[in-house]
């Protein structure tokens, strides 16, 4: 495997798909969060690869820095929500969150 644009995009795609599956199949709320992190990382790999191999230049790195910072903020809020959910249900199983089901 040579280090070129397509290989980086390949890695990014694998991270993205793993994250999506993680979000879809995990029943633990924090597991779902980890899936989100994987998806964001897949996007980051793409941005950095484009900044190296195309004329996106520095912009790609700047955007990936913003993604990292926003992911940290997202994790903090989502974790607070997860703790709240645990306080109300004494469980972190997202299948239990069905109060709004019609």
């Amino acid at each position: 495997m040579t280090a070129d644009l397509n290989s980086y995009l390949f890695v990014g795609a694998v991270l993205f798909v793993c994250g999506v599956i993680c979000m879809a199949t995990k029943r633990n709320g924090i597991g779902v969060l980890m899936g989100v992190e994987l998806v964001l990382n897949g996007a980051n790999v793409n941005f950095v690869a484009f900044s190296k191999y195309t004329d996106l230049g520095l912009d790609g790195q700047v955007i990936s820095l913003f993604v990292i910072v926003l992911a940290a903020a997202e994790a903090a809020v989502a974790l607070a929500i997860a703790l709240n959910f645990y306080n109300n249900y004494l469980s972190i199983d997202v299948d239990r969150a069905n109060k709004l089901k019609g």
Partner: peptide, 18 residues
């Protein structure tokens, strides 16, 4: 991988923040 793609700062930020 970020370090390999010449993005030192992003790689270090990934380690520190993420």
């Amino acid at each position: 991988l970020f370090f390999l793609a010449n993005a030192d700062f992003v790689g270090a930020a990934q380690l520190l923040i993420y």
